[in-house]
């Protein structure tokens, strides 16, 4: 999708927090990305190498923690991982389900020196 805009946001957030912490160098960025938030890891790392050049985040390693999508049935309250286009509850076959995990899209922490 829009990896350039996303990467710029990650860099802005990381630099701001590093500055507040009085860090000299950012060595790692820990991201938490849900299954339903479409983003291509390699593209982000590619843009990162360009955008972070000449900043204290140059050379930082991006770590992606992926959160598997999860739905919860509103009838039987059972949670399950949806398969492809099959969103029905595998336990009671109800169509009334809610997405409970997989929307995560955040910078969780940064590693600094």
């Amino acid at each position: 999708m829009h990896e350039l805009a996303v990467t710029q946001s990650i860099l802005d957030i990381s630099l701001r927090h590093a500055k507040e912490a009085g860090a000299k160098q950012i060595t790692g960025i820990n991201l938490v990305i849900g299954e339903f938030a479409s983003i291509v890891d390699d593209s982000v790392q590619f843009y990162w190498d360009l955008l972070a050049d000449d900043t204290i985040a140059q050379g930082a390693q991006l770590h992606f923690e992926r959160i598997r999508g999860e739905m919860t049935c509103t009838h039987c309250k059972r949670s399950f991982h949806p398969k492809d286009t099959d969103f029905a509850c595998p336990n009671c076959e109800s169509q009334f389900v809610q997405i409970t995990k997989g929307d995560e899209f955040r910078v969780d922490s940064i590693d600094v020196e």
Partner: peptide
């Protein structure tokens, strides 16, 4: 050191 951020991208 690890600095917690927890901020939406």
């Amino acid at each position: 050191t690890r600095v917690p951020v927890v901020e939406k991208i």
